[in-house]
Simulated scan of single mutants.
Amino acid sequence: MRVHYHLRGGLAHAAKKLRAGARTFKVAFIGGSVTEGAGASDAERYSYRALTGQYLASRYPEVAFTFVNAAVGGTDSVYGAYRFREHVLKQGPVDLLFVEFAVNDAGDRTASVRAMEGIVRQAKRSNPRMAIGFIYSPNTAGLRLFGEQGRLQPAIGHYEEVAAHYGIPSLSIARSIYEGIAAGELRWEDYSADEVHPHDAGFGLYGGLVETFLHETLGYREDDDADQDETAGLPEPLEPSCYEHAGLLPPGTAASAPGWRHEQPWRFEHVCYWKLPGEALIGDTAGAAFRLRFHGTAVGIAVLAGMDLGDIEFAIDGGRYEPMRLFDSRCTAFYRPKIVLLTDGLVPGGHTVDIRIAADSPALSTGRCVRILYFLVNA
Score class of each variant (00 low, 15 high):
residue 368 R to A: 09
residue 259 G to A: 08
residue 185 E to V: 13
residue 186 L to E: 07
residue 148 E to M: 12
residue 215 H to R: 15
residue 328 D to V: 07
residue 230 E to I: 15
residue 181 I to P: 13
residue 232 A to S: 15
residue 186 L to I: 09
residue 239 E to S: 04
residue 90 K to P: 00
residue 142 G to P: 04
residue 128 P to K: 10
residue 67 F to V: 15
residue 297 T to R: 14
residue 180 G to H: 02
residue 338 K to T: 04
residue 225 D to T: 12
residue 312 I to G: 02
residue 172 S to L: 03
residue 197 H to C: 11
residue 68 V to C: 09
residue 131 A to Y: 03
residue 321 Y to D: 03
residue 190 D to Q: 09
residue 271 V to D: 10
residue 40 A to W: 02
residue 137 S to W: 02
residue 92 G to E: 09
residue 269 E to C: 07
residue 119 I to T: 01
residue 291 R to K: 13
residue 119 I to M: 14
residue 142 G to W: 01
residue 104 N to M: 11
residue 122 Q to Y: 07
residue 344 D to C: 06
residue 188 W to R: 01
residue 278 G to W: 05
residue 52 T to R: 01
residue 286 A to V: 11
residue 226 A to D: 06
residue 56 L to H: 04
residue 144 R to H: 05
residue 21 G to N: 13
residue 173 I to D: 00
residue 49 R to H: 04
residue 110 T to G: 07
residue 103 V to R: 02
residue 198 P to N: 12
residue 59 R to A: 15
residue 92 G to Q: 11
residue 13 H to S: 13
residue 194 D to L: 11
residue 113 V to L: 06
residue 145 L to Y: 06
residue 367 G to F: 03
residue 12 A to H: 05
residue 319 G to A: 10
residue 204 G to L: 08
residue 231 T to G: 06
residue 365 S to N: 10
residue 333 A to P: 00
residue 159 Y to F: 14
residue 336 R to H: 12
residue 97 L to V: 08
residue 76 D to L: 01
residue 98 F to C: 06
residue 354 D to Q: 14
residue 79 Y to P: 00
residue 345 G to E: 09
residue 14 A to Q: 00
residue 351 H to L: 12
residue 274 W to I: 03
residue 71 A to C: 10
residue 5 Y to G: 05
residue 191 Y to S: 08
residue 35 T to V: 15
residue 246 A to I: 07
residue 321 Y to M: 14
residue 187 R to E: 15
residue 355 I to V: 15
residue 189 E to Y: 01
residue 186 L to Q: 12
residue 104 N to I: 04
residue 342 L to C: 05
residue 101 F to Q: 05
residue 61 P to D: 07
residue 283 G to W: 01
residue 10 G to C: 09
residue 62 E to H: 12
residue 290 F to I: 05
residue 182 A to K: 15
residue 256 S to Q: 13
residue 47 S to E: 10
residue 241 S to V: 08
residue 162 V to K: 08
residue 96 L to A: 07
residue 152 L to G: 04
residue 369 C to F: 00
residue 101 F to I: 04
residue 143 L to C: 11
residue 348 P to V: 11
